[in-house]
Simulated assay, not measured.
Amino acid sequence: MAIASGWRKSSYSTNTDNCVEVGRVAGGAAVRDTKDRAAGYFTTTGEQWSAFVAAIKGGTFDV
């Protein structure tokens, strides 16, 4: 498993436990649940992470 570092969560989620954190791994990003950090994390490539962020900014997941 890739070693992740530099974990961050959105400043919009300061008063809640229902969020995820994003960390850095070589060539991409790691994502974990703030409620259960010990459960581990999944990783993405830099290209996958960029596409995901672009989809969020583009409103793809808006309900």
Results as ranks from 00 to 15, higher is better:
35 K>I: 07
33 D>Q: 02
55 A>N: 13
26 A>G: 15
31 V>P: 08
58 G>I: 07
50 S>K: 15
57 K>H: 10
7 W>C: 04
12 Y>P: 03
11 S>D: 05
49 W>C: 05
54 A>M: 03
26 A>R: 15
17 D>R: 10
37 R>D: 00
22 V>Y: 01
3 I>L: 13
26 A>H: 14
24 R>I: 15
52 F>I: 07
26 A>Q: 15
6 G>C: 07
43 T>S: 01
56 I>V: 15
42 F>V: 15
54 A>V: 10
1 M>P: 13
15 N>A: 14
61 F>R: 05
47 E>C: 05
23 G>C: 07
27 G>S: 09
48 Q>E: 15
22 V>P: 04
2 A>V: 11
37 R>A: 12
54 A>S: 15
12 Y>S: 10
24 R>P: 07
53 V>D: 03
45 T>I: 02
29 A>W: 10
42 F>Y: 08
23 G>Q: 02
20 V>Q: 00
42 F>P: 06
35 K>A: 00
51 A>F: 04
13 S>H: 03
54 A>R: 12
48 Q>H: 11
18 N>S: 11
17 D>H: 10
15 N>Y: 07
57 K>A: 09
21 E>F: 00
56 I>A: 08
37 R>L: 04
28 G>V: 06
18 N>G: 09
53 V>F: 01
20 V>C: 06
39 A>K: 10
6 G>M: 09
